[in-house]
């Protein structure tokens, strides 16, 4: 499996990367951890005459937490997300989700930026970022803009990012809520048959706020506002969870593939969503 030939670029700053992107347009693509892009190039499903390796760009790395806002550089690896104690304290759901991605080797290389920019419905971070209401920071030759994760995904592999833009950072508020990331997969290293991110806060014995988002159950991640609405004001009892699951299932549109027929995916999704809600509530 040898990919088509390409020219390799390794700029040391964002400006350098942007200028190669501007010069070569859709002939150029950035490389982060390469664990989605390189397999596609090996299969010759992605043809990238100009490959721009981002590994030397220090501005794209690192995690900062200040005034309740978490900012993560696009080139931060899943391994780094898992092992960052301050991040775990501020947003433990990130570690919980990242540990369910692929296997150790993939997590050493795979980055959060690549995971959210990729646009593969199987990627776990996009749904999680929608659940957290994260913002993606994109830089292009015309400047910087912020796009909410909830508006970023258009269809499989199609996102709001312009071909000539680089995702530099992801930001979201630290979490003061019960949380859970639940994922059903056939084996370690497989993408989700169904996955769900849930955040729930409590006021007395009632649900005050809720946020529910799902992975790999449509061609984009799906935030279900109806599922959240079904929980708010309830005691998160069986009937409320059932109503939330029913509402969430209305919002997804899974397709049949090697992970099973649609009816099976709906069944698995129902179980995963209700587990995510129950676990988030138990931690609220």
């Amino acid at each position: 499996m040898i990919p088509a030939a390409f020219e390799y670029h390794r700029p040391s700053d964002i400006e350098g990367a942007l200028s190669v992107l501007a010069e070569h347009g859709d002939e150029a693509r950035v490389l982060a951890g390469g664990h989605s892009l390189i397999p596609m190039m090996k299969l010759r499903m992605a043809d990238v005459p100009h490959l721009i390796d981002l590994q030397d760009i220090a501005d794209l790395k690192g995690i900062t937490i200040a005034d309740g806002i978490i900012t993560i550089g696009a080139m931060t690896t899943q391994h780094e997300l898992i092992n960052h104690e301050a991040l775990f304290a501020a947003a433990p759901i990130i570690r919980e989700a990242a540990l369910q991605i692929a296997d150790p080797q993939v997590r050493y290389m795979g980055t959060i930026g690549g995971n959210v920019a990729n646009g593969d419905p199987g990627n776990d971070m996009p749904g999680l970022m929608q659940c957290l209401d994260a913002q993606f920071i994109l830089v292009g030759v015309d400047g910087t803009r912020k796009v909410p994760a909830r508006d970023f995904y258009e269809s499989a592999y199609m996102t709001n990012r312009d071909d000539e833009e680089i995702l530099t950072h992801i930001t979201f508020a630290s979490i003061d809520a019960g949380y859970a990331y639940e994922k059903q997969k056939r084996k370690i290293g497989d993408y989700a048959t169904a996955a769900c991110a849930a955040l729930v806060t409590k006021d007395g014995d009632k649900v005050a706020t809720a946020s529910i988002a799902m992975t790999n159950l449509s061609d984009v991640p799906v935030l279900s506002e109806a599922a959240a609405a079904a929980l708010i004001g309830t005691t998160c009892d069986t009937a409320a969870v059932k109503a939330a699951v029913a509402a969430a299932l209305e919002d997804i549109d899974p397709t049949e593939d090697n992970r099973g027929p649609v009816a099976f995916k709906m069944h698995v999704a129902g179980i995963i969503i209700s587990r995510a809600i129950a676990r988030a509530w138990s931690r609220a």
Binding site: M1, Y8, R10, L31, G34, H35, I38, P39, K42, L51, D53, Q55, H79, D103, P104, Q105, V106, Y108, M109, G189
Partner: peptide, 29 residues
């Protein structure tokens, strides 16, 4: 496997376990 799944090609690069079938030589510069 040559498809990033089996780990037989695992080497250590700058303190990370990496499947070397999923890295271009140029990245290891």
């Amino acid at each position: 496997c040559e498809t990033s799944h089996c780990g037989a090609c695992t080497v250590e690069i700058d303190g990370k376990s990496v499947k070397s079938c999923t890295m271009f030589a140029a990245q290891a510069q």
